[in-house]
């Protein structure tokens, strides 16, 4: 028996919006720790890792570990039927081939339930070891989204370089080239407007902008994004989900042959 009650139901809609462009079908894993997901895009270039901790739910009952295969477009269709202020409860019985989403209006005057068929999904689960990163950039998520969107209008790839000068995002395309340099800035009115660049070693890596732009669909989940770079590793783009957990995107770099 599984029963997860999320008072801020809109959070689940935002999570779906953040990942459904990257991943079509995925297994949601439920355990005593929380509600989680790890899935790769079809080309195995990018990976999304989601955790919504059990403590973040108003009520969290998960009698045994359960993996539920869902088509994310269908799940998004169902969640779209909830009101923005609704409380969402996810329910499933052991061994059932369906999951139920229950939506309650804040005043309890409207209660709906939507049942969705589950699917069997063969998914490869990757072990991602803890790593030391050469550079970690913490910046406003909206600024990162703007940079990715702007650069994608010029080129297909972005070179992210971190040096003593700051962090540089560069691209090149048929019509020209673009460079955006951000310097550390902590003299801001609100902490979420700060740009903090932590550099252990200079690093420069190339990534496909198409994936970066897809990651920025998570912007409504957090004001801050953290980008972790190491020359031998995929980049990690993390959006923290307040009091609940995180959504992390991993993207393999491109290398010159």
């Amino acid at each position: 028996m599984l029963e997860l009650r999320l008072v801020q139901g809109s959070l689940l809609k935002k999570v779906l919006d953040a990942i459904k462009e990257l991943v079509k079908d995925a297994n949601f894993d439920c355990s005593t720790t929380g509600f989680s997901l790890q899935a790769m895009d079809s080309s195995h270039v990018a990976l999304v890792s989601l955790l919504l901790r059990a403590e973040g739910f108003e009520h969290y009952r998960c009698d045994r570990n359960l993996s539920m295969g869902m088509n994310l477009d269908n799940m998004a269709k169902m969640l779209k039927c909830s009101g923005n202020d609704d409380i969402i409860t996810i329910k499933a019985d052991d061994g059932s081939d369906s999951v139920t989403f229950m939506f309650e209006s804040p005043t309890q005057d409207k209660i709906s339930d939507f049942e969705m068929k589950l699917m069997d999904i063969d998914s490869e689960h990757l072990g991602i070891p803890e790593a030391e990163y050469h550079a970690i950039i913490r910046m406003p998520s909206a600024e990162f989204a703007k940079i990715c969107r702007d650069l994608a209008s010029i080129g297909d790839t972005v070179v992210i370089s971190v040096s003593k000068e700051g962090v540089k995002f560069s691209t090149r395309g048929d019509i020209g080239a673009a460079n955006v340099v951000l310097r550390q800035n902590t003299t801001v009115d609100k902490p979420e407007e700060a740009t903090i660049i932590e550099m252990n070693e200079p690093v420069s890596l190339t990534f496909a902008l198409r994936y970066m732009n897809s990651f920025t669909k998570a912007t409504p989940l957090s004001n801050i994004v953290t980008i972790s770079l190491s020359s031998e590793l995929p980049v990690v783009v993390e959006y923290k989900i307040a009091e609940m957990g995180y959504i992390r995107f991993y993207l393999a770099p491109k290398i010159e042959e």
């Binding site: 790769m40 490869e124 190339t206 991993y250």
Partner: peptide
């Protein structure tokens, strides 16, 4: 020409 690496070149199946 830049070649796109795959995640499985970095991380192993758990």
């Amino acid at each position: 020409k830049a070649v796109q690496l795959s995640l499985t070149e970095f991380y192993r199946s758990a």
